[in-house]
Amino acid sequence: MTAVWAAVLLAAVWTAYWGAERLSGPLKKLRKQWGFSVAAGGSFLGIAAASPEIGINVTSAARGVSDIGLGAMLGSNVLAIPLMVATAYVATRKSGLKESGNKDHQEHRRKHYVAVDKGAVTVQALPYLAILAVFALLTLPAPWRGLQPIDGWLLLLAYLAYLVQALVRGRKQGENVDWSRKERWMAIAGVSALAVGAYFTVFSSEKIISALGIPNVVGGLFITATVAALPEVFATWSVARSGQVTSASTSVIGDHAVTMTLASIPLTIIGTPIEDFRLFWVSLAFVALMPVLYAMFIHFSGEQARGFHRWTIFGFAAAYAAFVAVIVFWVQPFQGSGGGA
């Protein structure tokens, strides 16, 4: 039976890839039509790319296994920034990149870095850290620890504030853009395929976790979260290859903003307690560490070569390796001895 679900998983990943391939063109047109900045363009892709997390949280809430959803939500937010930055870097190393608006791409390749607009820090990373602060305030203090119905409304307001500031800041006069009927339908098909593929990617991975007998929260942190990130990898690759490098590099923040707000609403509706507090706060600390590194790497890269350099890829990888080591060698021994709280 595991082999059957593995086949479903491969089919779902291919469906998500097909959908992601059709998003880069519409994203670029929408951004130009409405006059949004390149950094704000990541918010569009983030909404679509967050469909795996939304799907798994709806599913886990409906089945009464909210710990899978919570684990996948935290795990994907630790993994995704290192993975998407690395994906954008590799995608832009290849020749044949469409260089619309990016005439210096050959220099970027020669100097081994991904050029990113400085607005990625102020428009995406810092507001996302504010969302994490709100999430921590709602879940960590003992009197209201966990996710409750009122938290869903507060997180919705936090997301709307993030989205408005991302779209309004740096907005310019929009351009006239022509849309053919085929482009409209292909855009709709792309979003639909990404959502369907993402859902069945998560659904099949849950079945595999169950067959392997892995604890729900650990499976969510490392297996479901990893598989759920695949559609976003495809979307990031496609958008980066289309020449929209900043949008590709910032979509991961847009995804995370959705994940920690809108995608968590199903868990707030049913009420999700924090059963292993040590595992939760350690994971949340690493969730916050990744955007801090994201902002620092861009800010300190300098005006002449602003973005992600080759050494930053190794920095992100080291941070994720530290996360895995802390969970395996410090958190899990306490969990096994009953000291997880």
Rank of each mutant, 00 (worst) to 15 (best):
L126H: 00
T139M: 01
V116M: 08
E107G: 05
L140G: 04
F135Q: 10
L138H: 06
T139R: 05
P143I: 02
T122E: 05
W144E: 11
S100I: 14
Y128W: 11
K98W: 01
H108L: 03
R110E: 04
Y113C: 02
I131C: 10
G146W: 00
L97D: 04
R93Y: 11
R145M: 09
V123W: 03
E99T: 14
F135K: 03
L126V: 11
G146R: 04
K118S: 06
A125L: 10
L132H: 01
L126R: 10
G119L: 01
L126I: 15
V116C: 10
V114I: 12
K111M: 08
Y128R: 00
Q106E: 11
I131E: 10
F135P: 06
A125W: 05
L147M: 02
T122R: 11
L129A: 06
A120D: 00
S95A: 13
R145C: 11
R145A: 03
L137R: 02
I131R: 01
R93W: 13
P127G: 00
L137H: 09
L126E: 11
Q106M: 12
L129F: 06
Q124A: 09
V116Q: 04
V114C: 08
L97A: 03
Y113I: 14
L129Y: 07
G101W: 00
A115M: 12
T139D: 03
A133T: 13
R109H: 15
T139V: 14
G96T: 04
K111H: 15
N102H: 06
V121T: 04
R109F: 11
E107F: 00
S100L: 09
L97N: 12
T139P: 02
K103D: 12
H112Q: 13
A130I: 12
A142Q: 15
P141E: 10
Y113M: 09
Y128E: 02
G119W: 10
K94R: 10
A133S: 15
A136T: 07
L140H: 04
D117T: 04
S100E: 11
V123E: 13
K98V: 12
L140I: 11
A115S: 09
G96P: 07
F135L: 15
D117H: 14
L140P: 05
A133N: 00
